[in-house]
C-alpha cells in the first residue's frame, strides 16, 4: 500500500498571482526597493553637502532630470503606501488593553495618523516651503 502524503506544489516565483491578498502583500514588499534606493540617494546628497556648496548645488540640479522626477514620484508613492499600511497595521500589531476592554483599533491607527500629520507639517515648516 503506497502512502500519498499531501504535497502542495507552490510555484516559487509566481505564487503571489494566486490571490489578490498575496498581490497586495507583494506590492507592499516592493516599496522597500524604492525606499531603500531613495535612502541611498539621501546619503549621496549628504555627501555632496559635505563636499561644499558647488557639489551640493550640482546635486540639487541633477535631481531635476526627467529620470529623477520619475524616481521621486515612485519613491513618494512607495513611501506613502508604506506609511498608510504600517499605520493601519499598528492596531493589530500592538493592541492596547485597559482593564477588561481593548482600546478600539481605529483610535490606535488614528493617533498614528495624527502624529504623522503633525510631524509632516513641522518638517515642511522647518524646510521653509512657505
Amino acid at each position: 500500500m503506497s502512502r500519498k502524503p499531501l504535497i502542495r506544489e507552490v510555484p516559487p516565483t509566481t505564487w503571489y498571482f494566486r490571490h489578490p491578498r498575496y498581490l497586495r502583500y507583494m506590492s507592499r514588499e516592493i516599496t522597500s526597493l524604492f525606499v531603500g534606493a531613495y535612502c541611498v540617494l539621501l546619503v549621496c546628497g549628504l555627501g555632496a553637502l559635505a563636499d561644499g556648496k558647488e557639489s551640493y548645488e550640482a546635486f540639487l540640479l541633477a535631481l531635476q532630470s526627467p529620470l529623477s522626477i520619475a524616481f521621486h514620484v515612485a519613491a513618494f508613492i512607495a513611501a506613502l503606501y508604506h506609511a498608510t499600511t504600517w499605520f493601519n497595521a499598528t492596531q493589530v500589531a500592538m493592541p492596547i488593553q485597559i482593564g477588561e476592554n481593548f482600546v478600539p483599533g481605529s483610535w490606535i491607527s488614528g493617533a498614528h495618523y495624527v502624529v504623522w500629520a503633525l510631524l509632516s507639517v513641522v518638517v515642511i515648516l522647518l524646510a521653509g516651503v512657505f
Binding site: 540639487l60 521621486h72 514620484v73 504623522w116 522647518l126 521653509g128
Partner: peptide, 30 residues
Amino acid sequence: IAFFIPVIALLTLLVAFGKVPAGLSYESMH
C-alpha cells in the same frame, strides 16, 4: 520610514520640479 520618508520625499520631489524650498539651500542645510 512611515513617519519621515513621505514628507522628505515630498520635499525632494519639489526640488526635482525645480522649486527648492528655502530650508534646503546650501547655507541653511549647512
